[in-house]
Design a binder for these strands. Structure first.
Lengths: 337, 337
DNA sequence: CTGTTAGCGCTTTCAC
DNA sequence: GTGAAAGCGCTAACAG
């Protein structure tokens, strides 16, 4: 039991050939066209011994670790979980491993440089909104072809993947206007997060295009507490809107709670809607209408872009094309009167 | 820019010594007591060059990858996010990396064996409830000292870390009984998940000890939908209980929604309580009373146990000692009448 | 078609 | 105290 893992050597011996040939055959190296007979023998031997290439050895020799680093600020938001899941799944499909780096409290630089500088990873996927642009640019400057921004764009950094955040917000506005609303307020997280900026822009643009009165409120965070706080302020204002758009799903939960605490009926007196969907939307009171964005694709596409980069391709800005999906539930209705 | 990473060789040259000495000094190898002077020179050179040992090379030579594998079924439940976070944080503190393996759809065996057999990791932390006991035992049989079960115990596998699930459920019962409830129902997920089994046992034991009427219902899953479905059945039964305990937080959300849809007021007509807490508890209607369990510690303790194992220590069953915390919010109250 | 020969960057005996 | 040399398991030139 627990014997040592078989090496290339073991396979070669079993097949009666040289290790290098085994290596080539197993990797489908173009220069390794063995005769059908030996090829079969090698494959069988490898199979029988349960041979798996040692990634350390391979990495050392070829300086490809077959590993991607994923930097997250933590798992505070369901979006991060979705990204992680999408990344892991797609990376696996390409034979890549994923090493996790979070930096809830700590210094993101430390995390990144540890991963990259120890030669642990071939590329870094950075899905943290909290690192400043300048710091990010500095980092990318030192590691030109191996950083992909996820759910974020930064001037001067070419490789990034984002969703149609603006369109999602616009679609929320369109839905409300279709219902008859003429006065809508958007509650968004801090404009240091570029998803929030894009959603706010989409919101404002759509409102202008549809000629409705629209205001936005920026709050300090993008969690339920921030949504709650923002909604309280809006609902207590002199002329409250008839509809509220929350910048994130957790914020939507907060907005709903605020309306309840303020004694404002949803959707009878005010409609509520959030950008981004979540499983639990169906279990809120009332069930929250949302605009769904494919967060898992974000991870998958980021991996694809990383694959392109590591194989010498050129960086691009990717926008995941999936149309935002409006999911009408119970929290939106025509305005009162 | 983007120059190649400095090697041991570079540091040695800069310090005017041999690589082997650098290696020993940098690792604080007991056999490497350099004179204070050279020691200082080496340290300075390494610092200046920004030297970081290449993990592949180190792994190849010492067959220690300084990497832990974390197997999750996905990020379906917030508990998995918490575990991942706890693992990552603690592993980093020990200088270990974490590679993620999920198997939402795919074959968990593939994931595990890929990770382990490619020599990617020194140990595997298995936090999936979905793999069958037998399969797990088989796996551990082949990799004796490198598998740690997280949030799960399996007969025949010594290394595991769990929380005080039973006590958490018991504490929920105690709270309800203290409020005056005499008829309580527990809705738990499938008994193939041993957290569910432990919670159900704790529930039943506490009810018996406190001499109240208690029944349990097993539903097919442990998400909001399952909680909803279970609660509907309970609330429509001939003699519904005055209180419901949900086996997980998502189930608690579902139970709340079911009560609302069935027209049963919470907490006036029925009290609801969940095992496990979550941020969003404060934003539900009504705010959900929960029993909090330290899910992040689960990850941290699993890493500690893995450290023990990889350094030749003996496997043990760890129960994270933290007392479950009852967080009373709005969903529990004395029974009607 | 297949084998030989060098290392990748590091740790680890064993010398001096 | 420090250096020399070997080699972890693999891939990549170059031979044949």
């Amino acid at each position: 039991m627990a014997q040592r893992r078989p090496t290339l050597r073991d396979v070669a011996d079993a097949a009666g050939v040289h290790v290098s040939l085994v290596s080539r055959v197993l990797r489908n190296d173009p220069r390794g066209f063995a005769s059908e007979a030996t090829r079969a023998r090698i494959l069988r031997a490898a199979e029988e011994l349960g041979y798996r290439a040692d990634v350390s050895a391979r990495g050392l020799r070829s300086s490809k670790t077959m590993t991607l680093g994923l930097l997250l600020p933590g798992f505070s938001s369901p979006v991060y979980s979705a990204i992680a899941h999408g990344v892991e799944e797609r990376a696996t499909r390409h034979g890549y491993g994923v090493v996790l780096g979070t930096h809830a409290a700590g210094d993101p630089h430390e995390t990144i440089s540890d991963l990259v500088m120890h030669g642990r990873v071939d590329a870094m996927l950075v899905a943290s909104g909290r690192i400043e642009d300048a710091a990010l640019r500095r980092l990318v400057g030192r590691l030109p072809r191996s950083v992909v921004l996820v759910n974020r764009q930064v001037r001067g950094i070419a490789a990034s993947v984002v969703l149609r955040d603006g369109d999602a917000a616009a679609s929320a506005v369109a839905h409300l206007v279709g219902l008859g609303h003429r006065s809508i307020c958007g509650v968004f997280g801090p404009s240091t997060l570029d998803t929030m900026v894009r959603r706010r822009r989409g919101f404002t643009r759509a409102a202008r295009a549809l000629q409705v009165e629209a205001s936005t409120l920026e709050v300090a965070d993008r969690d339920s507490a921030a949504g709650y706080e923002g909604a309280v302020r809006v609902l207590r204002s002199r002329r409250p809107p008839t509809a509220l758009v929350a910048g994130t799903f957790p914020m939507g939960i907060g907005v709903l709670a605020a309306a309840r605490d303020e004694g404002v009926a949803v959707p009878a007196e005010v409609s509520v809607l959030s950008v981004h969907n979540d499983q639990s939307a169906d279990y809120l009171a009332p069930r929250l209408t949302t605009v769904s964005l494919p967060a898992e694709s974000l991870g998958a596409e980021a991996v694809e872009l990383a694959m392109v980069l590591t194989s010498g391709g050129t960086a691009r800005r990717v926008v995941v094309p999936d149309e935002p999906q409006l999911l009408v539930r119970e929290s939106t209705a025509p305005p009162p009167r």
